[in-house]
């Protein structure tokens, strides 16, 4: 893929800032606009930018873990958070919160909705990565595609 210097440089700057923004959305989601889904999509946007600038290889290198592992652990986390209250005698998805005083950060209110949101975040992130994994490659010559089709069927 041909690299464009302007795109490449802007992505270098933007990539990490967008990721930080996505984390902000994730943590702000409890009582402000945001949440795991919005955060995950923002992170997905960062990944798309990286893909546009430097191709699918760079996206693969950015995450040492396989996309479906990210997706699966996200789903696992969310499903566990949904089920745990049942074991404690509550209803599905019932949440609790705890307020703690932390040094430097001050008063922090943490809820059990947060792990659920983190799960959603990971799920969306994994899904985006999987999409690039599956369709991000440069179109290959025809013979390879046909061989691929044989192998998959």
């Amino acid at each position: 893929m041909k690299q464009l210097r302007i795109v490449d440089t802007s992505v270098r700057v933007l990539y990490h800032s967008i990721f930080v923004l996505s984390l902000y959305f994730l943590f702000a989601g409890h009582n402000q606009p945001g949440g795991g889904f919005a955060g995950g999509l923002t992170a997905g946007a960062a990944i798309s930018l990286r893909y546009i600038a430097r191709g699918v290889g760079s996206v693969r290198r950015a995450f040492p873990v396989q996309p479906w592992t990210i997706l699966g652990s996200g789903l696992l986390l969310s499903a566990t958070v949904a089920i745990v209250p049942l074991l404690l005698g509550g209803a599905v998805l019932e949440h609790d919160d705890v307020t703690v005083e932390l040094p430097l950060l001050g008063t922090v209110k943490a809820t059990t909705a947060l792990p659920f949101d983190i799960g959603v975040y990971l799920l969306v992130l994994g899904l985006t990565l999987m999409a690039f994994e599956a369709f991000g490659d440069e179109p290959e010559p025809d013979s390879d595609l046909a061989a691929d089709g044989e192998a998959a069927s």
């Binding site: 479906w68 592992t69 997706l71 699966g72 652990s73 996200g74 789903l75 696992l76 969310s78 499903a79 566990t80 949904a82 089920i83 049942l86 074991l87 005698g89 509550g90 209803a91 599905v92």
Partner: peptide, 23 residues
């Protein structure tokens, strides 16, 4: 408490997650 009501929906989802991770 009717924990059982939610399980037919929640358990397979949890299983799907485990299944993906241990693919």
């Amino acid at each position: 408490m009717n924990a059982l009501v939610a399980l037919p929906l929640a358990l397979p989802l949890l299983g799907a997650a485990v299944s993906v991770v241990l693919g």
